[in-house]
């Protein structure tokens, strides 16, 4: 009897511990973000104050608006968006069919292929940087958004392929076969049944790729000079900027990532097969 009564109690205690840990982790991540945000919207003089109040007393858009208008930040935002969209389009166009094939067909070397996909990530971009940039110069791809997008595609493809493959594994083959018995072609069955069911997972994978491209610094920094993406621009510029601009830049690169996370949250779980209701 005693053990039976204590079981739910122990479970409740375990749950509270999990929540406590989650709250601590969240604070650990969110307090710096909060401080950066406050500083980015504070007048310049306040930034140097110490100690800083936890709740800001003065807010101003001065730093932020100056930051946006100077430095060519908006151009680099445009570049970043373009690169991310190209990356997303190319990696889905190549990765989703590959993932589908991995999910549906048993073919010789399938398992080795699965591992080989990941091996592209075994090369740090640093090692490849010199050959890569000289090839890009030869092909006229250097300092272009397409060039950066191609590099990002190479980096994103392994995850795209493996994630889409697990998404398609989750869509039973029987469903497509059932559609075929009722008069669909193979492509028709895919379009009417597999695709609609895989769409949330594919969207998740796409957003994953988008974020990867948005955050990538090193490749973007070495491949571009004029047409820098936002992270590349910020890394290069902010080191030589006064502190208020560093906060503004930090805030500017944080926000899209946070918005993405909010947006993707549901789908991230579906990537790992956990259902969120």
């Amino acid at each position: 009897m005693a053990s039976r009564a204590s079981a739910p109690l122990a479970r409740r205690a375990g749950r509270s511990l999990v929540y406590l840990a989650a709250i601590l982790v969240a604070l650990y991540i969110m307090i710096p973000i909060y401080l950066v945000a406050v500083m980015a919207f504070s007048p310049r003089a306040v930034v140097y104050d110490y100690p800083k109040p936890l709740i800001p007393t003065q807010l101003s858009l001065e730093t932020m608006s100056f930051f946006l208008n100077a430095y060519g930040i908006l151009d680099s935002v445009k570049n970043s968006v373009l690169v991310a969209i190209f990356t997303l389009a190319i990696s889905l166009a190549i990765g989703a069919p590959a993932g589908y094939a991995l999910a549906r067909y048993i073919f010789p070397g399938g398992d080795i292929y699965r591992i080989l996909i990941l091996s592209t990530r075994a090369f740090p971009v640093v090692i490849l940087s010199i050959p890569l940039i000289s090839t890009y110069i030869n092909w006229g791809l250097d300092d272009t958004t397409l060039g950066v997008a191609l590099l990002h595609t190479a980096m994103a493809l392994p995850t795209t392929i493996l994630v889409t493959s697990s998404v398609f594994v989750g869509v039973s083959k029987d469903l497509e076969e059932a559609a075929m018995t009722m008069g669909c072609t193979r492509a028709g069955a895919f379009r009417r049944v597999a695709l609609p069911l895989a769409l949330p997972g594919l969207a998740a994978s796409a957003i994953f790729t988008f974020v990867l491209s948005w955050n990538e610094v090193f490749g973007a920094a070495i491949l571009t000079v004029q047409n820098q993406t936002l992270p590349a621009k910020l890394i290069v510029q902010l080191n030589q900027s006064p502190i208020p601009f560093r906060f503004a830049g930090g805030f500017f690169i944080l926000v899209p990532a946070i918005v993405f996370m909010l947006f993707v949250r549901r789908y991230l779980f579906s990537l790992w097969g956990v259902k969120l209701r």
Binding site: S172, D174, L175, E177, V193, P196, L197
Partner: peptide, 9 residues
């Protein structure tokens, strides 16, 4: 089908 293969969407 054994799994019924009813279209969930």
């Amino acid at each position: 089908f054994q799994s019924y293969a009813v279209f969930p969407h």
